[in-house]
Design a protein around this nucleic acid. Structure first.
Lengths: 190, 190
DNA sequence: GTCTATAGATGGATAGAC
DNA sequence: GTCTATCCATCTATAGAC
C-alpha cells in the first residue's frame, strides 16, 4: 500500500506518546496500522528505526521553524521573543512528536543517539547565542547564558506536557505569558 | 539479609535512571543487588511495586522539603523565592529520583498512578497559591497564575536533567540565577 | 507489499527446597 | 530470606509463500 510507511509512523507516534517506546510492541503498531507485524519490516529495518525516523524529522522541522520565526529579527530582544514564540507554538503544534523527542531518546543506540543529540545541541546553541549576544550588548542582565538558556528552553518545552486544545487559554496566550515573564526577567533591573 | 529491601530500591533507582523503567528487567535489578531474581519477590510484590515505592517516598520528601523552606516566610515574594530555591536544591540532591518521578509515571497502573498524581497536584497547588496570592496583593503582575506556575516549576525541575556536580556552577548559583529571572519576571513592570 | 508461521531470546512471576 | 528450577506469556525479528 502506498503511504503505508507514513501510516506506520503515524500510529507509532500515537503509541510512543501514549505508552512510551519500550512499552509499545511492534505488534501494537502493526495492529493499529492494520497489517501483520512482519510487514512492518518491509518499511523499517527495526523498531528503533521507526523511533529514529520520528525524532530526526521532528528535529529538522524544529530547526526550520526556528529559522522561519527568527527571519528579519535583528536585536537580541526581538530575536529571543521570536525564538520563544516559535518554540512554544511548535511544541503545541507537534505535541506528541516533541514529547517523544523529549523523553524517548534512551531508546536509541549509540550512533543514532549521537545524531539526534547533535541536532538538539545545534538548536540549543542558537538560543544560547542570542542570549549571549544580548548580555554582551547590555540588553540582558549579566548572568550565565548557558544556564539561563537551559531554563528558558525547558520552560517553553513544558507546554507539550500540559497544553490542552480544550483548555481556557489559546497557544498564543501561553506564548505571551511566558515571553512577558522571561523577557522582563532577563532585562537589567531598573 | 537486613537492609536488602533498601539495597534493591537503591539499585533499582540506578537502573530506572540510567535506562528507564520498562527497559530495566527484574534480572538487572537482582544482578546488581547480588541476589537471584526470585528473591526480589520476597521484598516486593512485583516490579511496579518497586517503582511505586521510589515515587511515593520521593514525593513525600519533596513535600517535606517545601514545608521546611517555606517556614517563617510571609510575603508571596519571600515564599516564592524560598519555594524555588528549595525545589531546585531538592532536584539536585535527589537527581535520579526526581528524574524518575518526572518520566516514569506511565509505569504505574491506574490506582498507583492516581495516588502519585494527587501528591504531585497537591504540591503544585501550593506553588500556585503563592503566585495567586502575590497577584492578588499586587506583588506580582496580573497573569494566569496556573500557566505561570507550570512554567516556573518545570524550569526549576529541569535542573535534574542537566546539572552536573562537576560543572562550573554550584547548585546555589543555579538557584540564584533562576530566582533572579523569575522573580523579576513576575514583578509588575516599572 | 503483505501474508502465515515460527525461531530464539527474554520478560515477569511462582513453586517448593533449604 | 535466599536458592534452583521452571512456567508461560510476550517480544523482536526472520523465512518463505503468494
Amino acid at each position: 500500500m502506498a503511504g503505508m510507511k507514513e501510516k506506520i509512523k503515524k500510529v507509532a507516534i500515537h503509541h510512543f506518546y501514549k505508552r512510551g517506546y519500550f512499552a509499545t510492541g511492534i505488534n501494537d503498531i502493526a495492529r493499529s496500522a492494520g497489517i501483520q507485524k512482519s510487514s512492518i519490516y518491509y518499511h523499517y529495518a527495526n523498531k528503533e528505526d521507526i523511533l529514529f525516523d520520528i525524532l530526526e524529522t521532528t528535529m529538522e522541522k524544529l530547526d526550520a521553524n526556528f529559522e522561519k520565526y527568527i527571519r528579519g529579527k535583528v536585536s537580541p530582544e526581538e530575536q529571543l521573543k521570536a525564538a520563544i514564540e516559535g518554540h512554544i507554538l511548535f511544541h503545541v503544534r507537534w505535541q506528541k512528536e516533541t514529547l517523544i523527542s523529549d523523553s524517548e531518546l534512551r531508546g536509541l543506540t549509540a550512533r543514532n543517539y549521537k545524531t539526534i543529540l547533535e541536532m538538539r545541541d545545534a538548536y540549543e546553541t542558537k538560543f544560547q547565542e542570542i542570549i549571549r549576544k544580548g548580555i554582551e550588548e547590555g540588553a540582558f542582565e549579566d548572568m550565565d547564558y548557558k544556564v539561563a538558556s537551559y531554563g528558558i528552553i525547558t520552560m517553553c518545552t513544558s507546554v507539550a506536557n500540559w497544553f490542552r486544545k480544550s483548555g481556557r487559554l489559546k497557544k498564543e496566550d501561553i506564548a505571551d505569558i511566558f515571553n512577558r515573564i522571561l523577557l522582563k526577567g532577563l532585562k537589567p533591573a531598573g
